[in-house]
C-alpha cells in the first residue's frame, strides 16, 4: 500500500513587513525531505527576534532536524517495517533527536565563535507517512491535518508566555515543554506554519459575542487551505517543478491576501497533499 502513496509538498518562507523595512534577514527557515515510499520529513524553525544570529540558527536547525530524524527513521526501519511508534516511544525518541539538534547547534556556535543563545529559534518537525503523522515541536507556530472525512484538525498547541510575543526556543531548557502528537490514520493533507502565518491560515483569536471573550479554537481555516490543496494538485498536473511551485508559494505568502500582505512577522508555511 505504502508504495502507491506519494505526496505533493510545497514550502517557502517570506520576509515580514517589519524585517523588510529594517533590512533584517528573514529569520524563518523550512525544509522538506522526501524519504520515499510515502514517507517524508517537513520542518520549520522561527528565529528569535531578540537574537542576532537567529536566522543562522533557524537555517541550521531545519537541516539538523532533517538529518537526525531521517537517521532515526532509517535506524528503526520504520519505512521497511511499515511501522509507527506508540506515543510514549515517540516522545522519548523525539526528545533524544531534539537534544541532538541542540548539541549540534552548540558545536556550530563554538565553530563560529558565537553564543548558543544567539541562535535561538523555535522548531517544528513533522514525519509524514502512509500510516499517519508524527509531530514534535518546541515553542510556537501551528500545524494541522486534513483527514479522510475532509475535516481539518490541529496538531499542536503553541507554547506561549504571559505576553503576546513570548515563547521558548531549542536553545532553552525545553525538556518539560516538548510538544508531541501522533496521528495513526490515513490523512489527505498536512500543514506546518510559523506564527507569522497563523492569523492568515488558522482561526486563532476569535470573539464570542455571547460570552464576551476572545478564544483560540486553534483550527486550520478551510477557506484558506482547501483552495490551495486544489491549486497544488493543479500545478502537479501541469508538471511544474518543485522550485516553480515553491516560488509561486512564496509569492503567495508574501502578499497573497490582505492578512499576509500586512503581516509584520516573517511567514513560513509548508503544505503537503496526497496525490
Amino acid at each position: 500500500m505504502s508504495e502507491e502513496i506519494d505526496w505533493i509538498v510545497v514550502w517557502a518562507s517570506a520576509i515580514g513587513g517589519l524585517h523588510a523595512k529594517e533590512n533584517l534577514p528573514c529569520q524563518d527557515a523550512c525544509l522538506v525531505k522526501n524519504l520515499g515510499k510515502g514517507w517524508g520529513i517537513a520542518t520549520l524553525a522561527d528565529g528569535a527576534g531578540s537574537c542576532e544570529n537567529s536566522h543562522k540558527g533557524a537555517e541550521q536547525c531545519v537541516q539538523l532536524a532533517i538529518q537526525h530524524f531521517a537517521n532515526l527513521i532509517h535506524q528503526k526501519e520504520w519505512i521497511e517495517k511499515n511501522f509507527l511508534p506508540y506515543e510514549t516511544e515517540w516522545k522519548k525518541l523525539a526528545s533524544e533527536q531534539l537534544l541532538l539538534v541542540k548539541q549540534d547547534l552548540q558545536i556550530f556556535a563554538q565553530q563560529n565563535a558565537i553564543t548558543l543563545e544567539s541562535l535561538s529559534c523555535t522548531l517544528i518537525v513533522l514525519v509524514y507517512s502512509p500510516l499517519g503523522l508524527l509531530l514534535t515541536h518546541i515553542g510556537d507556530g501551528r500545524a494541522g491535518y486534513f483527514n479522510t472525512k475532509a475535516e481539518w484538525h490541529s496538531l499542536m498547541t503553541p507554547f506561549r508566555g504571559e505576553e503576546a510575543n513570548q515563547t521558548i526556543f531549542i536553545t532553552s531548557e525545553f525538556a518539560e515543554n516538548i510538544g508531541i502528537k501522533l496521528i495513526k490514520e490515513e490523512i489527505q493533507a498536512f500543514c506546518l506554519l510559523s506564527d507569522g502565518c497563523e492569523k492568515a491560515a488558522f482561526e486563532c483569536n476569535l470573539y464570542d459575542k455571547e460570552k464576551n471573550i476572545y478564544y483560540d479554537p486553534n483550527r486550520p481555516f478551510p477557506k484558506f487551505f482547501n483552495p490551495n490543496i486544489l491549486a497544488l494538485k493543479g500545478l502537479e498536473k501541469q508538471q511544474k517543478s518543485q522550485n516553480e511551485m515553491n516560488q509561486l508559494w512564496q509569492n503567495f505568502l508574501q502578499n497573497g491576501n490582505p492578512q499576509l500582505q500586512h503581516e509584520p512577522d516573517d511567514k513560513t508555511l509548508i503544505l503537503g497533499v496526497r496525490k
Partner: peptide, 10 residues
C-alpha cells in the same frame, strides 16, 4: 498565481 485563499477574522 493559482494559490489563494481567504483568511479568518482573527
Amino acid at each position: 498565481n493559482p494559490f489563494g485563499g481567504e483568511s479568518p477574522e482573527n
